[in-house]
Design a protein around this nucleic acid. Structure first.
Lengths: 139, 139
DNA sequence: CTGCTTGCAAAGGCTTTGCAGAACA
DNA sequence: TGTTCTGCAAAGCCTTTGCAAGCAG
């Protein structure tokens, strides 16, 4: 069996295991996303997925990214007020973001240390912690 | 002299000290913002400022908030993909953000501890660090 | 078959911009 | 008087939504 077919199968398995019906569009999007750890905007996903003849519509890209995030396959990041970024790696970690180049990279878990406050506002609990180190180019 | 007049004078001084020509609209906006530490969206500033007869236009609100942020009077926060928040306190600190209520609050500097990575991506330097603890209501 | 998905285009929310008139220095 | 600022409306960008046609189970 070819590698491509194997990859497709494992993507389908991944979707099913998260309660997502694997349509051809979703499989195509998932294959692009989960190929490697990366941080992508909806537009970038659109470009990756629409290289060939069979196009996936913008609406479906957005709906699918939203669905994947909701089902825990992706993490939506709030690093840039102008557009959403989706992280194909969902384990807990943080980010560098270079605003000049729009490039994001991960901060390895053991390169950072955060001691959170013990006192939270009345009646609340932590949902998640997002830390972003904004960078600029030197000189 | 009245307190209101004194407050107006100090706002004008503040603007001038940051190289901003104090027009009546800017003074009005600044007076609302710097009354106390707070986190406001453009819309909220609009509401605060337009209680009385003399209205400030939406364009001017946006332009002024952008100008204040550029001149270092305000800090623009990226906590919510849907809208920008402006923090009237610019010293370095972090935030709680309750997504259900849209409420933000400060995390006191000594309630938190962050050890940043020593290794930054090639050719970059840190511009700022933004950490947000996203909250949900308990139960 | 019956419901879930897709694609298109239109609508929506926040923010920026072009430009003419008003205010400032 | 020359420059800067304001307000209005229009435009822009990213994202969501309504709906008819298509596909999955």
């Amino acid at each position: 069996m070819t590698d491509a077919k194997n990859q497709k199968r494992s993507v389908i398995r991944l979707l099913r295991s998260h309660g997502i019906t694997p349509t051809s569009q979703r499989v195509k999007i998932a294959a692009a996303l989960f190929e490697k750890p990366q941080h992508l905007t909806a537009d970038q996903v659109m470009l990756m997925v629409n290289q060939d003849r069979k196009k996936v519509s913008k609406a479906t890209i957005y709906n699918t990214l939203g669905l994947f995030a909701e089902k825990g396959l992706l993490k939506e990041l709030t690093v840039d007020a102008n557009r959403a970024y989706y992280d194909s790696t969902t384990h807990n970690h943080h980010h560098f973001f270079n605003q000049e180049t729009q490039e994001m990279s991960d901060i390895a878990a053991d390169d950072i240390e955060i001691k959170l406050p013990e006192q939270l506002p009345e009646g609340t609990e932590i949902e998640r912690v997002e830390m972003v180190v904004y960078l600029r180019n030197k000189d």
